[in-house]
Design a protein around this nucleic acid. Structure first.
Length: 580
RNA sequence: GUGCCCAUAGUUUAAUGGAUAGAACACUAGCCUUCUAAGCUGGAUAUGUAGGUUCGAUUCCUACUGGGCACACCA
């Protein structure tokens, strides 16, 4: 327990930064330098930490080079700062390698899973909504980007000390549902039930759109079905209930494969009636008005256009159900912050929705966490035309490829083991692919490119851990004779060991940056760089075949690397494998 | 028409206004009788155009070009 508590404080490297900042402030007799002003030099030969002197120089009317030289002549070295070095306008600090190694590795190995966690969120209650799919439609790579991004952000916020609940909001009540049911009744009802019913419904929806395009007069039949569903009785309603469940079961299977859990799933059908009542009340209060036959919120004076609630025929549009749900989040779940992970095309809509909530008196923080969509090389995805890559198809294709790759390498493994490892590799690859680029970049999903198992992928990270595991298990055989329990970490003298340690030390700061910016790609990039550093080290240094004390120190170092890679992957929702 | 996003190597991309623009893929030359070659080492190639702010701009501002998206009855 004690370990947990200490790991929530400032990390060791942040303490070192803080002490340097204080030392500088003492020299200039002004509280001007902050710990965060200390950066990591771009070239590791320059030093371990660096203070750019531009702003200080301005403050004290010197050139930045003079400033750096002034500071280096005055600074008192403490036990961890070995020396300073001025390079142009930068004051660089060189740390005591052995001491740093000891501090950092002990920090990691004692904190274990909690290394890197912090308390910035101060237990604030955040609800994050993602994976807002439609029933009766396909679940495709676009949804995959959403769920991977949303889930990683949720985990990162948790690591930053927020109280997070993950929720999903399923649209099970729109006109698309009636279309799918119509096509099902017209073309598929006599067929025997398919195995993957959710997937099947997606195909039925595509058929529905094609058929309705050809025969416009069938639209009235669809309208009738919609009315029947809304009346909540009769055959169409029963069929709606049944097929809705097919989709929901399909989503559950996908969530299970992805190992993603929601605390709560909301359905449009459960909020729509409530929402219609609310619209009536708001209309009576003149908050909503009639315009061109439709019921709208006029937001022109906020430069947000108009938001439609009801069509001229009286049927409901999106905000009707969204509004009561948003309010329930504040009132019933008592959250401080409401986050919606929805793609950038809906940013105007969310500005409108948030403005309406604000006008209704809700002061809590609302955030639309937007990201760009996923398209295919041949163009936009569309569930209507079926120009999509469904999750199920993608998963199977990826799994097949992974199975092949594993069989190639491990002829002695049984099928069960191969399958287990393949699944973890595949889920990792898909998740990592979705979050490794920044959210404001459109992803053109190239399946060949995405299903690679080398380079900047999660497989590279899993492989790194598998390598470390392999060394660890061999070390148990070879070091049996050793009875020494005390590991002396200042045996780590190789420069590559030092670089690795600096990298490891940065991890807690990466968690903060990722949290502040809602940006899982920070972690992906960091882990990849760490793994690159490790693999370079691995190839240039012998870990097992060396003196006992050095070996023990190196084993501690690679254990620390493994711990950090695992902690980071955990935040991305990616599992590691023992061997691969 | 108005607003939002994007533009970096052949491709996919990285860089709170700071040190030599960093990777991955592809291409290419090497490295498995040393701990897993899903790995490592070496090699060529990049900031759309024109201004501005700044000691310093890939980053900020303006205009332009190109691409994408959203703007009243889709969700």
């Amino acid at each position: 327990m004690k370990n947990k508590a200490t790991s929530f404080e400032r990390s060791q490297i942040e303490k070192i930064k803080q002490s340097i900042a204080e030392a500088i402030n003492k020299i200039v007799k002004k509280d001007i330098v902050k710990a965060t002003n200390l950066i990591y030099p771009p070239n590791q030969n320059f030093g371990d930490l660096s203070l750019p002197c531009f702003e200080l120089a301005k403050e004290f009317k010197k050139t930045s080079v003079e400033m750096a030289e002034f500071l280096t002549s005055k600074i008192k070295l403490d036990n961890i700062i070995l020396t300073t070095k001025v390079i142009g306008p930068y004051l660089n600090f060189i740390l005591d390698k052995s001491k740093l190694a000891t501090i950092i590795i002990e920090e990691i190995l004692s904190a274990e899973q909690s290394y890197g966690l912090n308390n910035l969120g101060n237990k604030e209650k955040v609800m994050i909504e993602y994976s807002n799919a439609n029933t009766h439609k396909e679940y495709h790579v676009g949804h995959l980007r959403n769920i991977c991004y949303g889930d990683a952000v949720a985990k990162i916020l948790l690591a930053n000390g927020y109280k997070v609940s993950s929720v999903s909001y399923i649209n099970d009540f729109g006109i698309h549902v009636a279309k799918t049911i119509w096509a099902y009744q017209s073309f598929y009802e006599k067929e025997k039930e398919p195995i993957n019913k959710g997937y099947f419904l997606g195909k039925v929806y595509v058929r529905a759109c094609e058929e309705l395009e050809k025969n416009k007069e069938d639209k009235s039949a669809v309208g009738l079905i919609m009315k029947n569903i809304e009346s909540r009785q009769g055959i169409d309603y029963q069929l709606w209930k049944e097929t809705r469940q097919w989709s929901i079961d399909g989503f559950d299977k996908i969530y299970q494969k992805l190992k993603i859990k929601f605390d709560q799933i909301f359905y449009e059908s459960e909020y729509i009636d409530n929402g219609l009542d609310m619209v009536v009340k708001l209309y009576q209060k003149f908050f909503l008005i009639k315009s061109e036959g439709a019921v709208i919120a006029d937001l022109e004076k906020f430069n947000l256009g108009v938001l439609l609630f009801l069509r001229s025929d009286g049927t409901a549009l999106y905000p009707v159900a969204d509004l009561p749900l948003a309010i329930e989040k504040f009132k019933k779940y008592k959250i401080n912050k409401s986050i919606y992970v929805v793609d950038a095309r809906q940013s105007l809509y969310f500005k409108q929705l948030f403005k309406v909530l604000e006008l209704l008196g809700f002061k809590q923080e609302m955030k639309h966490l937007s990201y760009e969509f996923v398209k295919l090389p041949e163009g936009m995805m569309s569930s209507r035309t079926g120009n999509v890559i469904t999750f199920d198809d993608l998963y199977l294709q990826a799994l097949e490829k992974a199975l092949l790759e594993i069989k190639k390498r491990h002829q002695d493994w049984n099928d069960e083991k191969i399958k287990l490892v393949a699944k973890k590799i595949v889920i990792g690859v898909l998740k990592f692919e979705m979050i490794k680029v920044s959210a404001d970049k459109v992803i053109t999903f190239d399946i060949e490119q995405a299903l690679r198992f080398d380079g900047f992928t999660s497989t590279y990270l899993q492989y790194t851990v598998a390598r470390i595991n392999s060394i660890m298990s061999k070390s148990k055989v070879e070091s049996r004779k050793s009875k020494k329990s005390e590991v002396v970490l200042d045996n780590l003298k190789d420069i590559k060991e030092h670089f690795l340690i600096i990298k490891l030390a940065k991890y807690p700061e990466i968690i903060k940056i990722a949290g502040e910016n809602y940006d899982p790609s920070e972690i992906a990039k960091y882990l990849f760089e760490l793994a690159q550093e490790f693999n370079d080290y691995y190839h240039s240094v012998q870990i097992l075949k060396t003196e006992e004390e050095i070996m023990q120190a190196r084993l501690a170092l690679i254990m620390a690397v493994k711990q950090v890679v695992m902690n980071g992957l955990e935040l991305l929702g990616i599992e590691v494998v023992e061997e691969m």
